[in-house]
Design a protein around this nucleic acid. Structure first.
Length: 521
DNA sequence: CGGTTTTGACCTGCGC
DNA sequence: GCGCAGGTCAAAACCG
């Protein structure tokens, strides 16, 4: 950790204060804190990549930290900036020497403050990581304990649900207890309303039947049992006469023992998602030659329907990589362009994913996360929320759109057209995961995004795009820098993906054959 | 033989 | 309550 007492005056992003350099074509030291408004910062400021790379000194931190650091630093600098301006005014009346001296002092202060910011942000990161870890452990321990207590109870939860429905005359009954109750009360047939679960779900039983199930999803364990929710919901939806074969149970039941639960679920737990949002969907538009969009997962087709307004049938797939995996996807050709396949993913995997599936899974999971975060006020998600409300992601509007008209909130990632590399990068950085390779079939492979290869104008565009897209300048700047730093570091997503893996919404191979498209007339 | 696909039937939610 | 559309089930057919 850097010591704040260090008197080094070089800053990660050096400040160029001299007004005379404003019009310099290439400024190697970009002053983020300077007021460029006078000259239309959007167009006239040209930033050299070296300003972000070559001049960055000592601090050996990853880009994520840089971003945070920057973000924090900006606040600090704003103050300094004011004082600098004052000094500039004064300097016009005094000699240059004094000004320079003062500037040097200010720079020193600035450097110290930035280091302090950096130190704090590192601490913040550590705390965040610790929190994630603890939460994950807690979740796991809770699950393990429940699983232990539960024994083989799994086997008849389905029956329990059906029975309960029957007992209630077919009406949906409060079911918030299901997710927790599954693991808690070992005698379902004796107690249709596990009391222990009641305590954990804090008195939700009084809520209207209609919403209970959804409401329950807000509970702490929601993500882990997302599977349960979806499956359970379906279970509830079924008629009482449904078969109760062991196989059916095995398929519908939640997997309580979670050794393979993706670390992912942790973060989702923390999202105070609302029931509808929990069913957020991620649509991916891709252009394919045939009907196959390989996403690394194994799917089994369980239905096909003719959807209104589209001559092409819609196919329904279920993930078969993990038993009882609740992830489903719908595949349908676009009405406008039949070479475009729209794949919609829903749900969270309850198993680990092969590397081939990870990319897509991370992307869709991140997109879903963004969608979820859009409805929350979670601190590190506020920036996302702002653009989600606007329906687009800054700088990547043509790549990602949010649909509020759909039954469930849906984020659509459109990769049917070679996107502007900056848009691609912006999207990637917003998602904080690498976009699947299949989406990189664009003139600019992300691997070519090395910082030095980005033109100065591109960087400037990125910055201005972010600024234009977001009123929150700091966040916008951070986004722009994330873009840049991320570009210079193709593996930038490691951090994000590791932590949150969350909802690995995933996608997989469409294993169906060509006759999938056969509609049932 | 086990897994997958097909496909008619069924269920649910929603709008009228 | 009814009809419609979306979504799912599950038996039968298919496939390797």
């Amino acid at each position: 950790m850097d010591s704040s007492s260090h008197s080094h005056t070089v800053t990660p992003f050096q400040v160029n204060i001299s007004p005379s350099q404003k019009n310099h074509q290439t400024i190697t030291e970009f002053d983020f804190f300077k007021n460029y408004n006078n000259n239309d910062h959007d167009n006239n400021v040209v930033v050299s990549p070296s300003a972000f790379t070559a001049d960055v000194p000592v601090l050996d931190i990853d880009h994520t930290n840089i971003i945070t650091d920057l973000h924090l630093g900006l606040n600090v600098v704003a103050i300094n900036d004011a004082s600098e301006q004052g000094d500039d005014d004064m300097s016009s009346k005094s000699n240059d020497e004094n000004t320079k001296n003062e500037m040097a002092v200010l720079r020193g202060k600035l450097a110290r403050m930035e280091k302090e910011n950096h130190r704090l942000s590192l601490m913040l990161d550590e705390l965040q990581t610790d929190y994630d870890t603890l939460l994950m452990h807690f979740e796991k321990m809770t699950q393990d304990k429940k699983a232990e207590e539960d024994g083989e109870r799994e086997g008849f939860v389905g029956k329990f649900e059906k029975k309960r429905k029957i007992e209630n005359g077919g009406a949906l009954v409060p079911r918030d207890s299901l997710e927790l109750g599954l693991a808690i009360k070992p005698k379902p047939e004796m107690d249709p309303e596990p009391s222990s679960s009641r305590t954990l779900t804090s008195g939700r039983l009084g809520s209207p039947p209609e919403n209970n199930f959804e409401v329950a999803s807000k509970e702490l364990v929601l993500s882990k049992n997302e599977n349960v929710s979806d499956e359970g919901k379906k279970e509830l939806g079924k008629g009482n006469e449904r078969e109760d074969s062991p196989i059916a149970h095995a398929e519908r039941l939640p997997r309580l023992s979670p050794p393979n639960y993706a670390p992912n679920f942790v973060n989702v737990d923390r999202i105070d998602v609302d029931a509808t949002l929990r069913r957020a969907r991620v649509s991916v538009r891709t252009r394919t030659d045939g009907n196959v969009v390989s996403d690394g997962c194994q799917w089994r087709k369980y239905g096909q329907k003719m959807a209104k307004g589209n001559p092409s049938p819609r196919s329904y797939y279920r993930c078969t990589m993990g038993s009882g995996c609740p992830v489903r996807k719908q595949v349908q050709k676009s009405v406008e362009d039949k070479s475009v396949v729209i794949t919609t993913y829903e749900g969270y995997h309850n198993h680990t994913l092969p590397p081939a599936a990870m990319e897509m899974a991370q992307t869709t999971a991140a997109a879903a996360r963004m969608l979820l975060s859009g409805s929350t006020s979670s601190n590190n998600r506020t920036a996302n929320a702002s653009f989600l409300r606007r329906g687009t992601i800054p700088g990547s509007s043509s790549l990602a759109t949010i649909s509020s008209s759909a039954p469930f909130p849906t984020i659509t990632l459109d990769f049917t057209q070679p996107p502007n590399p900056l848009q691609l990068q912006m999207l990637q950085n917003q998602l904080q995961v690498p976009l699947p390779h299949m989406f990189n079939q664009v003139p600019y492979n992300q691997s070519t995004f090395s910082g030095l290869q980005l033109s100065q104008q591109n960087v400037a565009d990125t910055v201005s795009a972010a600024i234009a897209a977001d009123r929150n300048f700091t966040a916008a700047l951070a986004a722009a820098l994330t873009s840049f730093v991320g570009a210079a570091q193709p593996n930038n997503n490691n951090n994000a993906t590791n932590n949150d893996g969350a909802a690995s919404n995933n996608n997989g191979n469409i294993t169906s054959s060509s006759n999938n498209n056969k509609g049932k007339e």
